[in-house]
Design a protein around this nucleic acid. Structure first.
Lengths: 327, 327
DNA sequence: GTGAAAGCGCTAACAA
DNA sequence: TTGTTAGCGCTTTCAC
């Protein structure tokens, strides 16, 4: 064990009895190499515990050494969203496996240039965009093509990793119908967020199929807006007996607004959320919602960016209904 | 504007009419340089918008290009703590200013070697340890000295950035006393966490000063444990009229446990937490707690690691009491 | 105080 | 299929 010094590619090449170039080809998997060379290099790598130096590699490939996670939103407050925190933690854990670090950025909604600026900065190995808009995705320079993934809606060049909103919403609203609710309102996400459409569609369909009336009110994923929305809903359609919000935070706010109105949950009105944030189980009544593998989603996006071999354009992750007390 | 290509140090040197070596000295601030050279280089840097290439620099300095955030805890679940998420987001944002990415790691409590292993991995530019133990800090190799900071307790070699637990606790408990509570119990953090001691001390002091009895029950920062602790406390000291938990999550659990017992909050028993997590304002009753500049703390630690010039060994950040409904 | 030169660890032309 | 060669952009001796 001369494990004192960290092994370099030269060490590997020497141990395998090949040139550094050949060793490099085998390690990266790019370029030709005879089976024999392949084996010997692989053995040397294993024996020496060789790990490529990310800095050196980045220097020569101009590949960058950092993965940027960018969140699009109206204000920098989007970075405080629990969903973002979870996704970031998962990204930072997954990226660590590749010896890559993650940086976090807020992209102002109405400033598409900010994405381009970020994408153009040196040292960027890849980009994961959370909640992108389609126009924003268009501004990604093609120098980054193949090293961008979206959590949310994607594009032709940008593979998408996302919750199956349609299915998730379907499950929740059906649950409400099944448990006897028939006048169901929905609080949506921000209108600029394209992936919310699928959810609204699904809601519409289920409600119509069950002979109900469509009652949609806009939201913005915040709790404060949920409380307002609850008041709005009850004023506009006083006989509402269920509210579905496309965000747990908003659903929690709805709970609050309803409480202020003296409405009993779930007695008078059922409330359901979306995402199963940690607090969902802690509210009273505990929030019925639908849970999503955010960690898997983020890990998928990161691996697509860092590994990038034949990624399918859209990967959906399914929802699981979590029935607690509120619905 | 030949701003097409990103400027390198060579461009700067040429523009300033000096050698690349001199330009490097000025940019890094290391080594001698005449005032004149300094000025010319600075001007060139500004004009060309020069940003050093992190990868190239890391390659030659062996400085690494990635900042690891490591959280010590009994299980990997510590990574899900909202406090960690907030700190990570702040770290990832601050590190971005230095073109550095962040990776996230869990360090098993009883496996000190894991820290050494992480610290030894190549490509590591720095290390921020959250909630370290003193023994764990001892295992940090000195090759990383000056590039490590702690959020929590520090050591002779590792500067500490932390909430002033003593002051924070003092403020909360005094508030309880001031509002007429006299039989105050405390739910602590995990016993292995050294920085909890200061809080317990402060609690003891205030309680004794006001002629009360010390009632301490161990916690672990989870909500589940809070619920249990509430039951324990009320069984052991039935006349308890206030509970202070060193974690909001735990305080939320206490709220829950008390509710199960049919105890009215704040009528019968006041409850106060610590940290002001986002959900604190959303619980019913809304949680009285004390708020901390987690973002500033994390940013401080990151800057200490990345900038590292004369950092004071301990930096305390103060708490602010947030009075809501529960106390 | 300054510049010339060497080289960090790696990949990518190019020739063999 | 392989090895040789030339850098990527930067810091750092070491003479001057």
């Amino acid at each position: 064990m001369t494990a004192n010094r960290i092994a370099t590619l030269d060490d590997v090449a020497r141990a395998a009895g090949v040139s550094r170039a050949t060793a490099s080809r085998v390690v990266t998997g790019q370029g030709p190499a005879s089976p024999k060379a392949r084996d010997r290099v692989a053995a040397a790598v294993a024996e020496l515990g060789y790990v490529p130096d990310a800095a050196a590699r980045a220097l020569v490939t101009r590949g960058g050494t950092r993965l940027a996670v960018a969140v699009i939103g109206r204000t920098a407050a989007v970075l405080d969203d629990p969903y973002v925190g979870r996704a970031l933690a998962a990204a930072a854990t997954t990226a660590a496996e590749h010896e890559v670090g993650v940086s976090l950025h807020w992209l102002p909604l109405h400033e598409p240039a900010s994405l381009a600026r970020l994408a153009g900065s040196r040292g960027l190995g890849g980009l994961v965009v959370i909640n992108p808009t389609r126009p924003a995705l268009e501004t990604v320079p093609r120098s980054l093509r193949g090293r961008v993934a979206a959590i949310g809606v994607g594009s032709r060049d940008v593979p998408s990793f996302d919750v199956d909103n349609r299915n998730g919403t379907d499950g929740v609203v059906r649950h409400l119908v099944r448990t006897g609710r028939s006048r169901i309102a929905m609080v949506t996400g921000p209108s600029w967020l394209p992936c919310g459409d699928r959810a609204v569609d699904a809601y519409r369909r289920v409600v119509r199929d069950s002979g109900g009336e469509v009652r949609v009110v806009p939201g913005d994923f915040t709790a404060a807006r949920g409380a307002e929305a609850a008041v709005e809903i009850m004023a506009r359609w006083p006989d509402t007996d269920a509210v579905f919000a496309l965000s747990d935070l908003t659903a929690l706010g709805v709970l609050d607004g309803l409480r202020g109105l003296g409405v009993d949950v779930p007695g008078d009105v059922a409330v359901a959320g979306f995402d199963d944030i940690p607090f969902a189980g802690l509210s009273r009544p505990a929030l019925t919602t639908t849970t999503h593998p955010v960690e898997d989603i983020a890990a998928g996006a990161v691996r697509a960016v860092l590994g990038s071999r034949d990624i399918s354009p859209v990967t959906f992750f399914s929802s699981t209904l979590v029935v607690r007390e509120s619905a």
